[in-house]
Write a protein that binds this DNA or RNA. Structure first.
Lengths: 332, 332
DNA sequence: GTGAAAGCGCTAACAC
DNA sequence: GTGTTAGCGCTTTCAC
C-alpha cells in the first residue's frame, strides 16, 4: 500500500504479529502516521467476531412500585454505580477492552436488548437488582455472555458476584446490641429486590435470636429522600427507638438528617448503622458506621468472570461471594 | 434461505423496505422467529458505514487541580449528568439510535479516543467542562462528528449548546439585592472551567454595577462537600455576610448545611441562591432558590444537532443558547 | 518473512 | 416485487 507493502503486512503490523521484519514494521508505522490510517472496526470484527468492548448495563424493570425520582436521576445520584464502574474499568482497561455504560429503563429495554444482541459488544456486566427483572433471563436465552452484580431473583444460568448479605446484616445488628441499644428499628430497601429482602429478613432473625422484639420497619427506595421520610415515619410511630439499621448509606444519610431535625442526637439518643460504605457515609454528619461492601473488587471480579467466559464460552456459571466488614464511625 | 427466498429479500424485510410482497414478508418474519436469526451488525455497518449509535462522553482532562472525590464518584453523584442523559435519550430513542455513556478520565483518554475513531459510534455528545481539555480539539481534528455541551475553552469548529450564563447570574444577583441583601459573597466553581469563570466574573460585575462592594470568593469543585467547606471558610472570614450566590446546587446544598451547623438561619440570617435547578435543589432544607438551566432540553438539542450533522456532514457548526430562569424557593 | 486470495455477512445497484 | 451480483475492509490460511 502506501508503504509499498501488502495489505496483509499492514494487518500484521497493526495487530502486533511478531513475525514481521523490524524495518518493514517501521516503514508501515510511518506510513500509518502520515496517512492517518485508522483500521475499520466493522471490517475487523466481521472477521474476528469480536469488538473488544463490553457493556455495563443498569437495568430497571417495569415498575411495580412508585419512585419519587426518575431512573436516571437515581443512577446519577447513587455513588454505588460509580464504584462499580471504577472497579470494572480497572480490570478491563489493562486488557484493552472498552467499557460502555447503558442505562436500561423499561421504555429502553427492547432497544438495549437489540443493541446487545447485535454484537456491538462481546459481553455484558448486568446490574439488575429487581427480583422480577426479565433482563437476566432474556440475555441468558439469547446466549449473550453476561455476568450479574448480585444474586438474581430467579435462578438463571449466569455467573454472579455478591456480598455475603447475612454476615453483613449480622455485623450491623450485633454492633447495635453491643452499643447497648435494645429498641431497634430498621429502614428496609425495596422488598422487590433480593438485597432489600435479605437485609430485612436477616435483621429480623438476628434480633429474634438475641431475644429482642421484632423491629418496626419502614420501607424506602434506597434514595436519600426516602431515608429521610422513613426515619420520620418510624420515629413518629415509635418515639423511643434508640437504634436504627438502614439498608444502604444513602438512606442512612437522609435518616440521620431527619433525626437531627426532629431533635434527636446521633449517636447520643439513637445509633444509626448503614450499609455499603459509599461516599455518602463520609458525607453524613456524623459520618456513618456502616457495613462495607468491597464494590470495586466485586466489579473487578465481574469483569474477570466475563473475560473468562468470553475466552471459554462453554465455561459453567459460577458464583463469587465477598465478605463484608463493619466500619465503625461517628453515627453509633 | 430458510423461507425459500433470497438473501436480498431477507435484508429488505429486516430493514423495512416497503416494496415487499406482504405474504413474502410474513414468511420471512416467521422464518426469522423460528431460526432466531439476528443480523450481523459488523457486516451491516461495513457496508452502510453507520452503527446507529452515538456516545455520550464525559471527559475529564489531566488534573491541574486536586479533587477530593474521584472522577467516577463525581459523575455518579451529580444529578446534572442524569438530566443530560435523559434529555439526549429522549430524542435519540425515537430515531432508533442507541446511546452509550463513556466516562473518559485521563488514564482512559487514549483508549476512548481510539474507540470513537474506530467507528463504534456515528458521533459523540461531548461533556467537557475544563477550559484546557484537549478532547474537543482532538475529536474535531479526527473528523468525528461531535457536539459539545457548553462553550469550549478554546475555539473549536464544533457545534455546542449552552445556557446564557450572564443572564442567569444576573438573575441571581438581582434577586439577592431585591431581597435586601447587601453583604454578598460567592462560592465559585472551578476557575479552570468556563462555566466557573463566567459565573464568578459576571457576579462581580453585577454587584459593581449596582454599587455594591466586591464580594469575597471561595472556590469549590462543584461537589456538595466542597460547598460545605467553602461556606465555612467564607463565613469564618466574613461573619457578617447576608447573601450567598453559589455556582451550582450541589455546592449550595452543602453550603446551606454548613451555615445551619454554624448557627445561621437560612434564609433568616443569610440568603442562598444556587445554579442548575437540579434535584439537589429540592433535597436541601430549605429548598433552594436557584437559576434553572433547561438541561434536558439542552441535551435534546445537542442530540438534534448531532443527528443533523450526521445527515449533512458539511453542515457548519452552530451554537444554540438557552435562557435560564430564576426559581424562587425557601433558601432566600 | 511476505504476498495472493478467499471470505466474514450484509446492502444496494442492477437486471429481470 | 424479487433474485443475482459486486463489493464494504479487514484477517487469515496458504504458497512462496
Amino acid at each position: 500500500m502506501a508503504a509499498g507493502v501488502s495489505r496483509a503486512t499492514v494487518s500484521r503490523v497493526v495487530n502486533d504479529v511478531p513475525t514481521v521484519d523490524p524495518r518493514m514494521r517501521a516503514a508501515v508505522e510511518r506510513a500509518i502516521q502520515e496517512t492517518g490510517y485508522v483500521p475499520n472496526l466493522a471490517a475487523r470484527s466481521l472477521v474476528t467476531r469480536r469488538t473488544d468492548s463490553v457493556a455495563l448495563v443498569i437495568s430497571e424493570p417495569p415498575n411495580h412500585r412508585e419512585y419519587a425520582a426518575t431512573f436516571l436521576n437515581r443512577v446519577f445520584t447513587d455513588p454505588y454505580f460509580g464504584r462499580l464502574t471504577a472497579g470494572a474499568q480497572e480490570v478491563l482497561r489493562v486488557e484493552g477492552i472498552h467499557l460502555v455504560i447503558i442505562p436500561a429503563d423499561p421504555p429502553a429495554h427492547d432497544q438495549v436488548l437489540r443493541y446487545l444482541r447485535q454484537g456491538h459488544v462481546d459481553g455484558v456486566l448486568l446490574i439488575s437488582s429487581h427480583a422480577a427483572d426479565p433482563f437476566p433471563g432474556q440475555l441468558a436465552d439469547m446466549g449473550v455472555a453476561t455476568v450479574l452484580s448480585a444474586r438474581p431473583g430467579r435462578p438463571v444460568p449466569l455467573s454472579y458476584v455478591d456480598v455475603d448479605q447475612p454476615t453483613g446484616v449480622r455485623l450491623a445488628a450485633e454492633h447495635l446490641v453491643a452499643r447497648g441499644r435494645r429498641r431497634l428499628g430498621t429502614i428496609a430497601g425495596p422488598q422487590d429486590m433480593p438485597a432489600g429482602q435479605d437485609r430485612l429478613s436477616v435483621f429480623r432473625d438476628s434480633l429474634a435470636r438475641q431475644g429482642l422484639p421484632a423491629p418496626p420497619v419502614v420501607e424506602g427506595d434506597f434514595t436519600r429522600a426516602s431515608g429521610e421520610a422513613a426515619a420520620r415515619a418510624l420515629l413518629d410511630a415509635h418515639p423511643d427507638l434508640d437504634g436504627l439499621f438502614v439498608a444502604n448509606d444513602l438512606m442512612a444519610e437522609g435518616a440521620v438528617r431527619a433525626l437531627q431535625e426532629m431533635g434527636r442526637e446521633v449517636p447520643g439518643d439513637i445509633s444509626v448503622v448503614g450499609f455499603d460504605d459509599s461516599s455518602a457515609a463520609l458525607e453524613a454528619r456524623p459520618q456513618l458506621t456502616t457495613v462495607r461492601q468491597p464494590v470495586e473488587e466485586m466489579a473487578g471480579e465481574m469483569a474477570r468472570l466475563l473475560l473468562a467466559s468470553l475466552r471459554e464460552p462453554q465455561r459453567s456459571p459460577r458464583t463469587v461471594i465477598f465478605n463484608p466488614t463493619l466500619v465503625v464511625r461517628g453515627s453509633s
